[in-house]
Design a binder for these strands. Sequence first.
DNA 1: GCCAACGTTGGC
DNA 2: GCCAACGTTGGC
Length: 152
Amino acid sequence: MNYWLFKTEPDVFGIEDLAACPQQTARWDEIRNFQARNYLRDRVRTGDRVLIYHSSCKDVGIAGIAEVVSDPYADPSQFDPQHTLFDARATPGAPRWFCVDVRLLQRFARVLPLKELKREPALAEMVLLRQGRLSVQPVRPQEWEILLSMAD
DNA sequence: GCCAACGTTGGC
DNA sequence: GCCAACGTTGGC
């Protein structure tokens, strides 16, 4: 079982939107970055745990945790000519982009601010703090534990 | 809205 | 394959 951090813009789809979905479950799709795609396709599996991270918004930080409830499958949006993320180079036999389904496990009482993560020495090696612009990224088990204790 | 960082594209 | 130009992400 692996740990991940998924970024989302809450103005588009945030943790409150996930909470409002049937079974608090939604498709995590529209990933169009190769590094993120490779993690999704090759490493993310049913049962993995995910930090839901809110970006480009007022309260930037970790909003809660979710569980991956499907193995990766072809992101349907790549095949839809009406979709802004339609990819003419993708076919059902050779999809280029992938998604998974996630189910909300816990919405934190408060969004754990990015500012606090930056202050915590034990989190200095987090991918989130080391590399920008990666919407699906691995989280180390020890980082996961620290983050959950910080959220209490 | 600014702008730094970084990914992608395309000419050569 | 290099690298400049361009586009996007994302914090502030």
